[in-house]
């Protein structure tokens, strides 16, 4: 079959202009990369010298870049003729692939956890091969974690409520659904903050269990913050009537992201909070 494939000579030159969105030159990518470098360098300076200035500059730069860049995207989406159907499909690919990479990011932290969960004999310094390690009191899965599970599951339904209202053209309902979802996200974060401040083990020099616990749940919490921010942006855009029943990919991307965060939590709840609980739990 290869004889006739992909040959330039078989190309027909049509006179149909391409349907893609050719983006104008932009300074935001350079600023974004420089801000990221400042964040990375800022973390190093903060850790080694206790100097937070570079970190603050970097974070401010990163947030500002995100704001102006995505403001441009929103404006472009509202400009007729730029985001044709195929460009909208491209954005979907982009978001789905980004979430796939996020899944692999969490795989590394679950791998870390399961390494000790399934093979507690791999713990260093002749620690007794039991998981959670001897002497560790864990958090009661049926206290705040279960409450947080319910909060996140409920937020999954409220974001769907907003989506259905959006499809029906009911803007008021969309705003309501999104507002409730954002509040549930904030409620989850409050629960998580309370849990962290009252946890029976310490992150700093606490050993392998707190390390595995806090990195997995901590990065999840960080993603909840991102997801809530994304939903807040959608809420503002819904209040400004920027979504239509036909075109609202910004909302859909936020919803996808929110569901991803939700699913990660379910794995955390089952594998770390429930299966990884100690005989006596605090909470």
């Amino acid at each position: 079959m290869s004889g006739e494939v992909h040959t330039a000579t078989n190309q027909i030159k049509s006179t149909v202009p391409h349907p893609y969105h050719m983006v104008d030159p932009s300074i935001w990518p350079v600023l974004g990369a420089m801000s990221a470098m400042c964040v990375a360098g800022g973390i190093i300076f903060a850790a080694h010298f206790g100097n937070f200035i570079l970190l603050a500059v970097g974070l401010l730069g990163a947030m500002s870049t995100m704001y102006v860049w995505w403001r441009d995207v929103v404006r472009e989406s509202a400009t007729p003729g730029l985001h044709k159907m195929i460009t909208q499909i491209g954005l979907r690919y982009g978001m789905a692939l980004f979430i796939a990479s996020e899944v692999m990011f969490f795989v590394s932290f679950f791998w870390n956890y399961f390494n000790y969960f399934f093979y507690p004999d791999k713990m260093g310094y002749a620690m007794a091969p039991v998981w959670p390690p001897m002497g560790v009191t864990t958090i009661d899965p049926f206290a705040i974690p279960l409450f947080n599970t319910m909060v996140l599951l409920l937020s999954g339904t409220t974001v769907t409520w907003a989506h259905h209202c959006l499809l029906e053209g009911d803007n008021k309902g969309t705003v309501q659904g999104l507002a409730v979802t954002v509040m549930l996200g904030l409620a989850f974060l409050c629960g998580q903050a309370w849990e962290y401040t009252h946890s029976p083990f310490n992150f700093y020099h606490g050993g392998v269990f707190p390390s595995a616990f806090f990195i997995a749940t901590g990065f999840h919490g960080f993603h909840v913050i991102i997801g809530t921010g994304f939903l807040i942006v959608c809420l503002v855009r819904a209040m400004r009537h920027q979504f239509t029943p036909q075109r609202h990919f910004g909302f859909e991307a936020a919803a996808w992201y929110w569901h991803f965060v939700d699913v990660v939590w379910l794995f955390l709840f089952v594998c770390i909070y429930y299966l990884g609980r100690s005989a006596i739990v605090a909470g």
Partner: peptide, 12 residues
């Protein structure tokens, strides 16, 4: 101060 790969804290 974590112990992911630090045997002293139980890491691997």
């Amino acid at each position: 101060g974590t112990s992911f790969f630090e045997p002293a804290g139980g890491g691997d």
